[in-house]
Amino acid sequence: MADPSSTDPIIELTGISYSYPKEQPVLKNLDFELRKGERIGLLAPNGSGKTTLFHVIMGLLPVSEGSIRIFGRKIETEKDFVWVRRKIGLLFQDADDQLFSPTVLDDVAFGPLNMGKTKKEALSISRRVLSFLGLSSFEDRITFKLSGGEKKLVSLATVLSMDPEVLLLDEPLNGLDNNTRIKLISVLKTIDVSYIIISHDIDFLLESTDAIYTLNNGRIEKDTTVYVHSHDHAHMMGNVPHQHD
């Protein structure tokens, strides 16, 4: 992987402002850059505009000010964003929003079919992605009958099947049990894409990202470097060798 700072930015936001109707602006004159190979964590309080930022990048929310460049291309119209959505995959916070087809295979094939792949191609892509995520036996499962963790992994499959170059993950660990969590982290380590993760889980961010940014007053702050450090702690039987989750 090339040194991130030497490559052109994949996502380049300059002076972005966004406000929901009749409300204070959520994003104010925001600048942001993501380069190839970068893995960034976004840690900020609720309501600070993290999800809004993702939706702005995907063109789901129209910005009032500022410019968006993706892979060097200026993005303005809905048509431009259609192109963006093939390059960037967004994993929604709630998997129930993402999975709408009756069966898992239908859902995973939805993206590829929309991209103009034939039925056969879409099927083979979907099967490959499902088997990569260890979900091969899930093909014919009914989406709404999956457990929370399974839904999250299948949602990831639906995004990965479009072969994105960037992933935007909106609180991917929300409500996941430990096993699914471990699986998700190992998947993130294996795939060769740049990504931004919104999460409140600092351990997870430290493990799967290279830098942690925060959103403050509608702007991205990069200079809040997070230092890894350890604390002493005490509990019963602490003198016996043990592990913590």
Binding site: L60, F92, D97, F100, V159
Partner: peptide, 24 residues
């Protein structure tokens, strides 16, 4: 609100109004 979010998620995956089916 759910409908709005689902529609957004579908647009993110390139939905353009037509629907394909895998069933044979």
């Amino acid at each position: 609100a759910r409908a709005e979010r689902v529609y957004r998620a579908m647009r993110c995956r390139g939905f353009n109004g037509s629907f394909y089916t895998l069933a044979e």
